[in-house]
């Protein structure tokens, strides 16, 4: 919505003005104005978060978390309670650090996350003309199972799709089958994969994936050139080489999991549809990439069953 920044700005100025008026008349603060401030701030909270896309939610939640901490610290000053000040400051500062780190991981500023409305609607240009007809290779569960079973090292790259399909147990089963055959399996965790900070870690922990197998982006990127097969399951933008190669791309400069460095890539996805950023992923058209079109959970279960049969 084009006028939105304006409305938000007017609201913010109004809130500040009302606060100043209450502070000036501090001999008899006006409760009606105060309630107006509460309501206006609530409306502002609604308006700021409403246009933000799902994939930016981790950053938003972390930022709101920092806000809650700061406001609690302020309440501590008002109530003259040290505990509230200390606890609020701890939450506020750790929330702020987390927010900045996640924004950095997406190569965007916090302001850009809040105000750009990124991904809300395809912003003209490339997204509209993307009736992509480049050739890609499509395979089935059996082929995928063979590629994986005869590999030495496999890296699994999970994304939000894994959470949606609840495929964490199924993918763990694939990993178990592979490990029985002596394949080394690791998981590559992008800092902003999923919908909250640490989403993938929590999800995989629920399926009893050992923590040592969860590798952070920098660590796994060094390993990927020596990896036989990378399995991308439910992730998209965080693997898009356009972030590195195309300076005009909306995700240009975002650090990615460099799966294209692996000998072979299997992408498990329901369709060729673009990810949250609304852009095509060049990875899908690489000669060493195979697409497995299916629901993440079903695909993983099928692959596990096929590996067992080998």
């Amino acid at each position: 919505m084009p006028g939105q920044q304006l409305i938000n700005g007017v609201l913010l100025i109004g809130i500040l003005a009302a606060c100043i008026s209450i502070s000036i008349n501090n001999d008899d603060p006006n409760q009606a104005i105060f309630i107006g401030v509460l309501l206006a701030a609530g409306l502002l909270g609604n308006l700021v978060v409403l246009p933000i896309g799902g994939a930016d939610m981790p950053v938003v939640i972390s930022l709101l978390n920092a806000f809650t901490g700061l406001s609690a610290a302020a309440a501590g000053f008002a109530l003259d309670n040290v505990a509230l000040i200390v606890a609020g400051t701890l939450v506020g500062s750790s929330g702020t650090i987390l927010t900045m780190e996640m924004a950095t991981a997406m190569n965007r500023s916090v302001a850009n996350v809040l105000f750009a409305g990124f991904g809300g609607a395809p912003s003209g240009g490339g997204a509209t003309g993307s009736t992509e007809t480049r050739p890609h290779v499509s395979i089935g569960a059996q082929d995928a199972a063979i590629k994986l079973a005869y590999a030495d090292t496999v890296v699994i790259v999970p994304g939000y799709g894994l959470a949606v399909a609840q495929a964490q147990h199924a993918i763990k089963e694939v990993a178990d089958e592979l490990e029985k055959r002596g394949v080394t399996v690791n998981y590559a965790i992008h800092p902003v994969a999923g919908r909250m900070p640490g989403h993938m870690n929590v999800l995989l922990a629920e399926a009893d994936v050992p923590y040592e197998q969860l590798k952070e982006m920098d660590e796994i990127n060094a390993e990927l050139p020596r990896t036989d097969v990378a399995v991308v399951i439910g992730a998209n933008d965080v693997t898009n080489p356009a972030a590195k190669n195309d300076p005009d791309s909306p995700i240009a400069g975002m650090p990615i999991i460099e799966v294209y460095e692996a000998q072979q890539v299997i992408v498990i996805k329901r369709s060729m549809s673009p990810g949250f950023a609304g852009i095509d992923n060049d990875l899908f058209y690489e000669p060493n990439t195979s697409m497995l079109f299916d629901d993440a959970k079903k695909a993983a279960a099928d692959i596990a069953a096929e590996i067992q049969k080998l």
Partner: peptide
């Protein structure tokens, strides 16, 4: 020094409450 923290807590707390609910 009491009123200003109260106002800050009110504004930021309210933004956080409604923003989190939307999230």
């Amino acid at each position: 020094d009491e009123l200003i923290p109260i106002l800050f807590a009110a504004v930021v707390g309210s933004v956080s409450f409604w923003g989190s609910n939307i999230a």
